[in-house]
Amino acid sequence: MAEKPEPVRVLYCQMCGLPAEYCEFGPDFEKCKPWLIQNAPDLYPDLLKEANDKQAEKVANQLQAVGISSSGDGGGVREGQADSSGSNAASKPEEVKRLPGGKIKKKDKQEVVIEKIVRNKRKSITVVKGLDLFGVKLSDASKKLGKKFATGASIVKGPTEKEQIDVQGDISYDIVEFITETWREVPESAIFFIEDGRKVPAA
């Protein structure tokens, strides 16, 4: 006699009410994240990694703050310390390392970074970071990207609390052309892709 199939159990998010795997398409994914990390870590492994990276960054910043305050009167000027002793130069790359996905360097560097993220081996999201550094209004850019590629596009806070545009689907194939044609102030030489954890020029 054939076994009776088990009923499918759906895990619903306590924040937005959607099934957990659809939270990212809901009205406020940011509010769902803490609940998902606790209750559905296997659905969103990226969130778990992001939370761990944030924790590591917090600890690193605390240690760095202690190191600066204990260095005496000259502790306020980090650049001066780097000139006088090469040992402190190793702490500078930390700014770059602390970004898990985008790896955007210093905040004053003007560049647009595009990264394709695949979730659950089937959902793709194209992340666009840095347009605001060229004076582009992100809300305007989000609407134009969504309209051009007939998909959902939203502004979210990235791992470093900087705003980025998340576009549903893989649009990396002709997004560079669209960006340079729509916003003339963004040169193609300033656009980069993240491939296998490395930053590759789009040009």
Rank of each mutant, 00 (worst) to 15 (best):
G74K: 02
I171P: 03
S142T: 05
S91L: 15
S154V: 09
I165D: 01
K58E: 13
G135D: 09
V112K: 02
K157A: 15
V136Q: 08
G146R: 00
V128G: 00
N61H: 06
R122Y: 04
Q64W: 15
I104V: 09
K143F: 02
A153E: 04
D108Q: 12
I68P: 03
I175T: 06
G75C: 05
E115N: 09
K103S: 06
I179E: 03
L99F: 04
E163F: 11
V128N: 02
I125V: 14
K121I: 01
G67E: 15
G158M: 04
I175N: 01
S91Q: 15
V128T: 02
N88H: 12
S87T: 10
E115W: 01
D132K: 05
K109Y: 13
F178N: 05
D132P: 00
L63V: 14
D108E: 14
I165S: 03
D108N: 12
D83F: 07
S70H: 10
S172F: 00
S69R: 13
I68L: 13
D83A: 06
I175L: 13
I104Y: 05
D73L: 10
G80R: 03
Q64L: 15
Q164W: 00
I114A: 06
G146W: 07
L138T: 06
K121W: 05
G86Y: 03
P93R: 11
E79H: 08
I117F: 04
Q81M: 12
K157N: 14
K129W: 10
G158P: 04
D108R: 07
G130N: 03
E161S: 14
E95I: 11
Q110W: 05
K106A: 09
P159I: 04
K105L: 03
E57L: 05
G86S: 07
K157V: 11
S154T: 12
G80H: 04
G135T: 10
G76L: 03
I165L: 01
L145K: 01
